[in-house]
């Protein structure tokens, strides 16, 4: 099976029912995308397929119908994406395990809505659980990223 992940082609040999999450993590070796629940309830596994946020834990790889972007694909420690920069500036992460998913959801929101209101943020981000309760800083970071991206 052919997949395009972060702009690169990958050939994988798996049961086509395998959720994309496990293909990314165990087969391709991209472990930035996290396993939290396996039933699309927590958002830790969020990636983009054709720019849309998808819960990779519940998306059989055979149904992937476009280019995949993971947290590793939107920025790196030396060249962070604006959303990642805003996250760092606001010191959002605590345990950090949910933050790949939070950032991917926020990045998708901002690509569609460059100036989200608090309600827009609530709607977009409420599928992502953070057990450390970083929500106040996530909200601040989404607004900061939006401002950064509008200014850029």
């Amino acid at each position: 099976m052919q997949l395009t992940i972060n702009g690169k082609n990958h050939e994988v040999d798996v049961d086509p029912e395998t959720p994309l999450l496990w293909v990314l993590r165990d087969e391709v070796g991209l472990t930035g995308t996290k396993f939290g629940c396996g039933i699309a309830m927590c958002g830790a596994c969020t990636v983009h397929v054709n720019g849309q946020p998808r819960r990779s834990c519940s998306l059989p790889v055979k149904l992937v119908d476009g280019d995949i972007t993971t947290i590793e694909g939107i920025g790196t420690p030396d060249a962070m994406n604006a959303v990642q920069e805003a996250w760092v500036e606001n010191q959002v992460a605590q345990c950090g395990f949910c933050q790949s998913g939070q950032i991917m959801t926020a990045a998708a929101l901002l690509s569609m809505n460059p100036e989200p209101s608090d309600d827009d943020i609530d709607r977009a981000m409420s599928g992502n659980i953070c057990r450390c309760g970083t929500y106040p800083r996530i909200r601040a970071a989404v607004h900061a990223a939006a401002a950064k991206m509008r200014g850029a």
Partner: peptide
């Protein structure tokens, strides 16, 4: 202080046990 683990945790590069390969 800026947390030493912050950049890793915002770029998917922080390594948890579940990420060990």
């Amino acid at each position: 202080l800026d947390r030493l683990d912050m950049v890793e945790k915002c770029t998917g590069t922080a390594e948890y046990a579940i990420d060990v390969r």
